[in-house]
Design a protein around this nucleic acid. Sequence first.
DNA 1: TAAATTATGTAGCGATCAATCAATAAATTC
DNA 2: GAATTTATTGATTGATCGCTACATAATTTA
Lengths: 200, 200
Amino acid sequence: MTDHLLSKGARGRPRRFDPNAALITGRALFHTHGYEALGIAAITEALGIRPASFYAAFGSKAAYFERIAEAYVAEVLPLEAFFRDDCPIVDSIAELLGEAARTYTTCSDQAGCLVLEALRADRSGEGRRIAMRVAQIRREKLQAFIARGAPAVAFIATDVVTVTMAGMSAAARDGVSCVCLEQVAAVATVGLRSLIEGSA
Amino acid sequence: MTDHLLSKGARGRPRRFDPNAALITGRALFHTHGYEALGIAAITEALGIRPASFYAAFGSKAAYFERIAEAYVAEVLPLEAFFRDDCPIVDSIAELLGEAARTYTTCSDQAGCLVLEALRADRSGEGRRIAMRVAQIRREKLQAFIARGAPAVAFIATDVVTVTMAGMSAAARDGVSCVCLEQVAAVATVGLRSLIEGSA
DNA sequence: TAAATTATGTAGCGATCAATCAATAAATTC
DNA sequence: GAATTTATTGATTGATCGCTACATAATTTA
């Protein structure tokens, strides 16, 4: 329980809070309020610590968010889990879009994708820079997966998936239900199937 | 040129700026920077006036934005221009999505839809409230148009169009090109055609 | 026990936010 | 010309932003 406080050979005064738990809490806070709208005051109050402790542990709000965003994409809708070589590419995409519909609507006050919504919320700030980088890495990974099964249309198919997921994330934020998004995902899949099979 | 200054029967000291021109300028500013990120200081500097003059003319930043947003939806991608009874509904949608692809990418520093991007940028503020209302009215109008040609699937088709346009606006903001978005629109149209024709 | 190290609490930094106040200037009406 | 009306200028207001300086507290190492 308090292992993190008494770690081996840690000199100096021990922390009174768990940085890992603080990342979990911060993830929920950023998902609910967005990057810009979530202030240090709200973060430190939720964590039960003072700003000085926050900055000693994480460096800056941007660095804190960056760690949270990277952990998020590694855990939520991991592309590796959807794209397997024994499965037609369009079926993988259909699964991904359907699961996105469900994931984006699981919690009403944390609707949509943490990264995609942060990307939209910031126009030029540090939050956008971070979300942009994380989203871009994910996009390239997605394109590589699609290229294995449909190289001729990998670029455009990636754009379609990206646009659809961004739109679904936005719609989820606006209150669109899970079943509606699942239907949207199904319609998008029809178009993608036509695109991919037409290129075979 | 200065007609607005010398309007008939206007008592009191005349304005030194044109409110209509200020709305045009503000539209470009909001489109570029977003609602939250655009401050009164930047607005008044761009208009060449002092904050007090701005508030005397428009009341508040929110009211200023509301007038701009309403003028925007009335002018940009007007639904009435796309949906005519002598035209299959899916063709109207295809035209709308294609034109959205072009509109959203005409100016790189004003990419995407002014209203949809404002909707995404604000999580709970006044900007979101306004953009939400404007977008909702537009959504209902779109659904009514689609229902005339495809009543059985009007709701889901409206969701598909809404999600696609929100995603295209986001992608345009992130630098996706016009031709890419046109291809995305074409793929989405394939799915919609299947949906609508399957319900006939 | 002394020195070194690290985290904490308190307090506040300068900047920016939307919005406003009082005083003044410029027009019309009487 | 005097009164009225409206817009202007200039200086702020209180709140909040991300962030930090400083002294103190709590731990390890020597």
